[in-house]
Simulated assay, not measured.
Amino acid sequence: MNSETQKPAFRRQIPAGDTHERDVCSTCGFINYVNPKVVTGAIVRHDGKLLLCRRAIEPRTGFWTLPAGFMELGETAEQAAMREAREEANAEIVIDRLLAVYTIPRIAQVQIMYLARLARPDISAGPESLEVKLAGWDEIPWADLAFPSVRWALEQYRSVEGLSDFPAFANPPGEFGGI
């Protein structure tokens, strides 16, 4: 059997010069690195209200979230956040600044959240949303938020609302694995 017809045979081992166990092909030496996924999104503001999307997809179908999702190859974090707002709420947004970077090792994610504003007030549910709305603070469905990181972003934004200069946030104290 020649190398062109051999099927890769992966085994768990710590590659030379590495510190983590990985899947390594015993045929060719290829190392299969599995790294965290990057999620980007935004708190989108318009006339004192915030854009919320009611999820039409798993996980957490029917719960409310901010427009956010996985980055694609070839795009920046900002471009991904703008794309997600278009996909989920048919919203064109302008990114103003970074709000937070969360690390959630339990699900192997890094989440980058921006502050943004609507470029136009036109919004409607995209294919990943059951409905979208602009909500004031007293209209946010706090008990029906999809993920703890949505609450973190909203609460952290509230703490700096109206300020133009503040450092980016990270996970709230004691919050490292839950989403």
Results as ranks from 00 to 15, higher is better:
102 Y>D: 07
118 L>Y: 03
82 M>A: 13
95 I>E: 10
93 I>Y: 06
78 E>M: 14
103 T>D: 13
107 I>M: 07
117 R>M: 01
82 M>L: 14
92 E>P: 00
121 P>V: 03
108 A>D: 12
114 Y>S: 06
82 M>V: 06
104 I>A: 10
111 Q>C: 09
115 L>Q: 14
78 E>P: 00
101 V>A: 06
113 M>Q: 09
115 L>I: 15
118 L>D: 04
92 E>V: 08
102 Y>L: 07
99 L>C: 02
98 L>V: 00
97 R>Y: 04
91 A>K: 05
78 E>L: 04
83 R>L: 09
80 A>N: 08
104 I>P: 00
80 A>S: 15
89 A>G: 02
77 A>C: 08
110 V>F: 12
90 N>C: 08
111 Q>M: 10
123 I>R: 09
112 I>A: 07
88 E>N: 12
84 E>F: 08
90 N>D: 02
105 P>K: 13
83 R>F: 05
100 A>C: 03
118 L>V: 05
122 D>F: 04
77 A>D: 10
92 E>T: 11
117 R>P: 00
99 L>H: 01
81 A>I: 01
123 I>G: 06
116 A>L: 00
96 D>R: 13
103 T>Q: 15
85 A>F: 03
104 I>M: 13
96 D>W: 03
98 L>N: 01
76 T>F: 08
110 V>T: 15
101 V>T: 15
119 A>P: 02
105 P>R: 13
116 A>G: 10
98 L>W: 06
104 I>E: 13
114 Y>D: 04
84 E>K: 14
123 I>S: 14
121 P>L: 10
118 L>T: 05
112 I>R: 11
77 A>T: 12
96 D>I: 08
118 L>E: 08
75 E>N: 06
98 L>P: 00
95 I>T: 02
85 A>W: 07
102 Y>G: 00
95 I>D: 09
103 T>K: 14
86 R>E: 09
86 R>K: 09
88 E>M: 12
89 A>W: 02
91 A>E: 02
